[in-house]
Write a protein that binds this DNA or RNA. Structure first.
Lengths: 332, 332
DNA sequence: TTGTATGCGTTATCAC
DNA sequence: GTGATAACGCATACAA
């Protein structure tokens, strides 16, 4: 039955006017006689007519579509971000195209495709996109507005909206120092993301300011519970008890939970008495009594507000850093 | 500088041919002279021309866009599904529009909008969509292909792809019965979703077959750790120790983890010795030593394969149920 | 206020 | 093989 959609012309015919008057009936500020408008809307209702947004996009050169690039679906933290993004974009009449960046569909291909589909903007959400990528021959001089969310921009002239890592790590390290910890360790995750987050950088910097320059480093290859557990085991297995760290900061909560489970389960050590643990993100399960993870909450809603503000051109497009919130629980 | 995109006409001019020959150069099976094709592709490269997919969609009446409706971003289980969906759809050249269904943007509005944008299909992913919704006057006779994923379809003629709840609950109840549990309880989550999942229904049915007809019921209002903890507390607070259940099945893992934490933390009871716990979904953290949650894994990849197959018209559109896998750990 | 012509960048179809 | 005409459904500018 897939009967064709009614178009403005069909409505025009049914209402006995020209199709342009029909369009006017659907254009908010247009000048049109009340009686005709009424007749037209009636005809439209019975014919079940509704403007074709695709055709409109072509004519207006505006699709009200924004592409959001994501490359790490393992991190549950993505979900609240996606919820905030879709909510706010939809409030602006914009639809979000969720683009999965992976080995079968890389950044360059994705940008070209988004460009061909005429999206209004691209949001790189926590995605590893380098300057060199933009230099790719296939891209030519890309003219699409790009914004980076939840990650430092490594691209010249591309604004990024991030949680202020410097501020966050100051608060965290101050807290740890006050609690008396003096032998810190840091666990980083996937390398490409890690450097851009700059958490390790500031962690080191602030400990140095407190006179502590030796920081144990361990790295997980992904942001997963298992990778976190594996990384801390690799460290503990080769480190004599008397040389061990007394506090471990993990780049995010998932790693922290994995580390905690390994510390307690595999080695029978206590958290925080033997080794304290801090995470980042405030993942729901970190707050449960089983973990009581001390962590840092990102200002998701505000960050998303800012990106959407830039997308809408309502805000000047420039990188900004927003303050988050330290959440002290029992793990450190 | 937002310079305008090059169009086929620009390339035609540069290559000294008509714009239609240019199109042919970009149409796989078209008949065109080799030398001209080469000249055209060259010109296209320097002009940075790439076909406008929006215009193509309008002309072909095919957008290669599929809308995916989601209404519960609190469930981390959504992420692996979204990853599988985007991966497979992108492999078919289809882009997924992520639509957030909430109080500001309801199903009817979302369907109309998706229709106006000419999407090729809509996938209702775990979303509560009732028959009555389709009857809404505003929808008229909707002609868009609809598919339901990870949830029973309550809509006539709309195919659903789900994990076989009957089979799953058989396996689960059989396992629990073998382990010697005889006083089961069931915790359901958000009401609208719950009935469609039919997990409680089959749970009851199979216990009855085992001669156990009394089943304690508790319900959480959402699928969250906190709601799960709250629901079990409400039950334990009013139930004398000798009347308590010996095993609790929760509609999903998040509820189960919340219940476990409450059982152990608030009441000092042991899992599984005092009360065993089973979940559903196989959420990563359920597998950690802290929980060791016995659960049931949904066949995400196969389910997504089937939906995408239907979207592509490669598979007959009819409801199907796929078998999952029981994962026995220490909690039951 | 209403109708007309033209354009958006493709595809489909037909003539040459 | 190549060019031309019409069409997709709407927007813009202009004329009546």
């Amino acid at each position: 039955m897939t009967q064709k959609r009614a178009t403005a012309r069909d409505v025009a015919q049914a209402a006995g006017v020209s199709k342009w008057t029909v369009m006017r009936a659907f254009t908010p500020g247009a000048s049109i006689a009340d009686d005709k408008k009424e007749r037209i809307l009636e005809a439209a209702a019975t014919l079940n007519y509704t403007p074709n947004l695709l055709a409109r996009s072509l004519a207006k050169n505006l699709t009200h579509q924004v592409a959001v690039f994501v490359d790490d679906f393992a991190n549950p933290q993505k979900l609240p971000y996606l919820e905030a993004l879709t909510t706010r974009l939809q409030a602006e009449g914009i639809v979000t195209m969720l683009i999965n960046i992976n080995k079968h569909f890389d950044h360059v291909g994705a940008v070209i495709n988004a460009d061909q589909r005429q999206v209004d903007a691209i949001v790189l959400f926590g995605t590893a996109f380098r300057n060199e990528t933009l230099m790719d021959k296939r891209l030519g001089r890309i003219t699409l507005p790009l914004y980076v969310l939840a990650r430092d921009s490594q691209i010249d002239g591309v604004p990024a909206v991030v949680c202020d890592a410097q501020l966050a790590l100051t608060e965290i390290v101050n807290h740890l120092h006050q609690r008396g910890y003096r032998r810190p360790g840091f666990m980083s995750g996937a390398h490409v993301l890690s450097t851009a987050l700059r958490r390790q950088h500031y962690f080191r910097e602030f400990w140095t300011q407190h006179g502590v320059s030796e920081i144990a480093e361990m790295s997980a290859d992904r942001y997963s519970h298992e990778a976190g557990a594996y990384a801390i085991r690799a460290y503990l297995d080769v480190t004599p008890a008397e040389e061990r760290i007394d506090v471990l900061m993990c780049e995010n909560d998932i790693l922290a939970l994995g580390a905690m489970d390994a510390i307690r389960g595999t080695y029978g050590l206590r958290v925080p008495e033997d080794i304290a643990v801090v995470g980042f993100d405030n993942f729901e399960l970190g707050g449960t009594p089983a973990y009581g993870l001390t962590t840092y909450e990102q200002p998701i809603d505000r960050m998303v507000d800012e990106v959407v503000g830039m997308v809408m051109g309502r805000r000047t497009a420039e990188s900004i850093m927003l303050p988050g919130r330290l959440i002290v629980r029992t793990s450190a």
